[in-house]
Design a protein around this nucleic acid. Structure first.
Length: 320
DNA sequence: AATGAAGGCAACCGCAGAAGG
DNA sequence: GCCTTCTGCGGTTGCCTTCAT
């Protein structure tokens, strides 16, 4: 664009605002309105660039600024809107009276983003990360190794090895269970979305049945308000809730519902950040989520999300 | 009590689009 | 239609505070 930055002019103050500067800016704007930000600093007697003044006003001095912690409602709104709008902080802020885009951005970067990551979701797409399935081959290899160890001729060595392999065994079983649950869950989701599109009249019931199979606590949150953006129905996402170790409403549940990920799911906001060691204790935290399908981004043409796994995958046949 | 690490927040920077001449 | 100016937005940085060792 070739335009020189407004703050390049030498002699203009940068950095934190003093109470005196705040007072000058506040009084000037209350008296005259901000008008042209470019000329405001000079007229208001401030040695700042217009940009800096605008930022100070919009993020701090504006009388309708709401301060303090974000409520759970606000948190949910941010999560939901972010899943739809992405990093459109100003657009998100427009839905949160009294909150600035900068404040929301900071809150996202310092709290919500971390929480999503910790729960195994990609904070940008709100889709599950694939870490778990990336690790599956290793888990399976470990299981095979355990079998070999168990077949070792030396009984004493086998005894030692059995102990060492016991932990792996538990992990493998858990992984298998998670995997299977996810398959069911995703199938339910896929069918449900198909039903929503009118393709299969009774598919939703089937989906509900499947959802119930893998998620006793599963809810189909039909009360979730549809949110529209740009005048259209928003794409919906279906993600399971990841188990968390800290207080909260989730156990190891996989509530299937064709609503957006945390925002309106289960009526609660994200659980507080859990210790990462807890996440490690629950390999399934990524497990189910890692494979859950979503209509977000659309385009899935396969009736099942993982044709490469199901139903002929040796892992499944082994499990069954 | 001292020190380093991490978290939280305010402010800056650069870019893109809108508006005006 | 083109150019310049201005505004707004999103990403990033840096400082201050809090926490852990």
């Amino acid at each position: 664009m070739g335009r020189s930055p407004c703050c390049d002019e030498s002699g203009l103050k940068k950095g934190p605002w003093t109470p005196e500067e705040d007072e000058k800016l506040l009084q000037y704007i209350q008296k005259n309105g901000h008008g042209s930000w470019r000329t405001l600093p000079r007229l208001a007697g401030l040695n700042r660039c217009g940009k800096s003044c605008r930022l100070r006003w919009t993020n701090y001095l504006r009388p309708d600024i709401k301060r303090g912690k974000f409520s759970q409602e606000e948190e949910q709104t941010i999560l939901h809107l972010h899943s739809v709008l992405g990093n459109k902080w100003s657009a998100i802020a427009a839905h949160l009276p009294g909150r600035t885009d900068n404040e929301i951005k900071n809150f996202w970067n310092t709290h919500l983003k971390k929480r999503l990551i910790q729960m195994g979701f990609d904070p940008m797409t709100h889709r599950p990360r694939t870490d778990f399935f990336a690790a599956l081959p290793q888990l399976i290899a470990l299981a095979a190794l355990r079998d070999q160890l168990g077949a070792a001729a030396d009984p004493a060595a086998a005894q030692l090895q059995a102990g060492a392999a016991a932990g792996v065994d538990v992990a493998i079983q858990a992984a298998k269970l998670q995997y299977l649950q996810c398959l069911f869950q995703s199938a339910a989701t896929t069918i449900a979305s198909t039903a929503a599109a009118g393709a299969a009249p009774d598919a939703e019931a089937a989906a509900a049945a499947l959802g119930g199979l893998c998620s006793p606590q599963g809810t189909h949150d039909s009360t979730a308000p549809p949110v529209s953006a740009a005048g259209g129905q928003l794409p919906s996402c279906t993600f399971p809730e990841a188990p968390v170790s800290s207080e909260g409403n989730q156990g190891l549940s996989y509530g299937g519902a064709d609503v957006d990920v945390f925002a309106f799911h289960g009526g609660g906001s994200l659980p507080p950040l859990a210790d990462l060691s807890d996440a490690a204790k629950y390999p399934s935290a990524d497990g189910c989520s890692a494979t859950a399908s979503s209509s977000f981004g659309g385009g899935a043409t396969s009736p099942l999300p993982w044709p490469e796994f199901f139903p002929d995958d040796p892992f499944i046949t082994d499990f069954l």
